[in-house]
Structures are given as C-alpha cells and as structure tokens.
C-alpha cells in the first residue's frame, strides 16, 4: 500500500460502507465457523442430533490417527502438484494466447470453456470417460500405449488421474487472470525487449513473469485454496478417497466423516485443523512473495 492521502476520513461512513459485507460474512461465515469450533469439542450422532461434550478428544484422536496423518500428507502433495501443474499449464497456454496474432478471442474462449463446466458435472462425465474398464478415453489410451490403466486399484495412478483432472478444471480460471495480466504489460516494454532480440522463452522468464508476479502470487494462493477445498467433488465422484487412502484429501475425509459416517463433531475438529493448515500456508506464501515478487514498474 502506498501512503497516499486518503480523500475521506469519516470513520462512520467507512463503517456504513463495510457493514453489508461484514454482516453477511459474520452471519454466514463466522457464525457457522464459531459453531464449528464449538462442535469440535463435542461427540455427535448423525448431524448433531445428540451432543456430548468431550473436550479435546476429537483432536487427540486425530493427532494419533495414522489415516489422518496420511490424509494430511496426501493433501499437501496434491496441492503442490495441482498448483505447479495448473500454473505451468495455464501459463503456457496464456502465453500462446498472448503471442498469437490472429483469432485470439476465439482461441481464448475455446481454452477457457471447460472452466464453465461445474466441477460436480465434470467429475461425473470424466469418471464415465476414464473408467478403467469401460471408459472411452481409457480404451484409446490403452490401445495407443499398450499399457493397462487400472487406476481403481493403483494408488499412485488414481492420485495422478485426480491431479490431471483437477488441473484441467482450474485452467480456465488461471488463464483468465494470466491473459489479462499479460495484456496489461505496457507495449513499450515488450518492444524494447524485442528490439534487443530476446527469445520467446527468455522473454517470458525474464520480462513477463516478474511483471505479472502479483497475479501469479494471487493465483498461487487461490489455487492452493482450490486444491485444499475446491477439488472435493472430484474426489467424491471419482475415487472416494481410495485406493488405500491414496486420494483421501482432508476436505473429502471431513465431508465423509460428517455426512457419511455421522461424526459431525470429529469433522468439525478436522475443519478447524484444515483452517489452521491453510492459513499457515497462505501466510508463508504471502511472506515469500512479499520478499521475492517483483513489483517494479
């Protein structure tokens, strides 16, 4: 933040402007979150029809659960793979879109339309197409490579499939931001670099990436949140956390504990832990980018 003189000083007015947002957030996000915190100290039946105070029992049970530890590990690996995969792939496509001379908007729309497909629908459709024994894409993939592609029984393969699908689903979102950021770069900068005869990849790496680093930081954070929270329907529909918990992401585990295994109390504790993990991660990411992102120009 620059410290330019702010034109308005009435704290009351500022309060009024903020009230609608704050009220909605307090009522619909903070209040349920506090309720979640409260529930995390309770043992519950069904969705909380019977509640019994158990103190930190839920947290203790989680801390000692091997399944939960694996779930944390898997979630981190998944987030890392999705963030890197989604950023690299979308940067590649965005750069092409930025460079292309003719038909840019047509290409752009073609590249981002899968983003408009709801995650839940995407999961359903992709499961049908990628099914190990019945899917059409699997059929051709196996015919082309001669390999078997049984991701229902192979943990690493299931993880891989999930990462690819999650990245695919997030591409459009990233491309929208990246193309806009690239288009925002002053033309004079591009020109002078080009006159110096700098190659495409070097341009991207040396000139563009530093210039769009605020957007990249934003996307790293948003993609992290997506990987931790948003990829849930894909797990639910495609792998159900398996095989052997290889895709048992924290968000899926907590959903399943709450809604399938009727342990809302424990799921609430998981929810608080997830909140802690992601906040910490975001803090680290923002600190890191504060130090390294290039905010010149």
């Amino acid at each position: 933040m620059s410290d330019f003189t702010k034109p308005y000083t009435s704290a009351t007015q500022a309060g009024l402007l903020l009230v609608p947002t704050l009220v909605v957030l307090v009522a619909f996000l903070y209040y349920p979150a506090v309720e979640t915190l409260r529930l995390s100290f309770f043992q519950t039946l069904l969705l909380g029809t019977k509640q019994q105070f158990v103190g930190l029992d839920n947290y203790v049970a989680l801390a000692t659960s091997a399944e939960y530890q694996k779930s944390i590990l898997v979630s981190f690996l998944f987030a890392a793979a999705v963030v890197v995969g989604a950023l690299v792939a979308s940067l590649f496509i965005s750069y092409l879109l930025f460079e292309v001379k003719a038909g840019a908007s047509g290409y752009l729309l073609a590249a981002i339309w899968p983003y408009a497909l709801p995650t839940a629908v995407a999961g359903t459709i992709l499961l049908f197409m990628l099914h190990p024994t019945l899917g059409i894409i699997t059929h051709y993939l196996e015919a082309l490579t001669g390999l078997t592609f049984d991701w229902f029984t192979s943990g690493p393969l299931a993880f891989f499939v999930l990462v690819v699908v999650a990245v695919w689903k997030q591409l459009g979102y990233n491309i929208i931001f990246l193309v806009a950021a690239l288009n925002n770069i002053p033309e004079t900068l591009t020109e002078s670099a080009q006159l110096d005869g700098v190659g495409r990849l070097t341009m991207l790496y040396r000139v563009y990436i530093p210039l769009i680093s605020p957007t990249l930081t934003f996307l790293v954070v948003m993609n992290t949140i997506y990987a931790f929270f948003g990829a849930f329907p894909l797990v639910d529909l495609m792998t159900s956390g398996g095989p052997n918990n290889a895709t048992n992401l924290l968000i899926f585990k907590l959903y399943r504990d709450a809604f399938e295994f009727s342990s809302l109390g424990q799921a609430s504790a998981e929810s608080m832990i997830l909140f802690g993990i992601v906040s910490l991660l975001m803090y680290v990411q923002l600190r890191f980018s504060d130090r390294h992102a290039h905010y010149g120009a």
């Binding site: 039946l45 229902f152 029984t153 192979s154 943990g155 159900s240 398996g242 095989p243 052997n244 918990n245 399943r256 399938e260 295994f261 009727s262």
Partner: peptide
C-alpha cells in the same frame, strides 16, 4: 450397527487393498 456406513466403506476399501497388493 450404528456405524454401518463406515463398516461398509472399510470392507470395500479392504477388498481394493487386497487386490492392489
């Protein structure tokens, strides 16, 4: 069993583990 849903999941995942390994 009150926790039948969890038992079912355990059995089903257990079978996958058997054929996976």
């Amino acid at each position: 069993m009150g926790t039948f849903t969890k038992v079912r999941t355990t059995v089903e995942e257990g079978y996958v583990n058997m054929i996976q390994n």
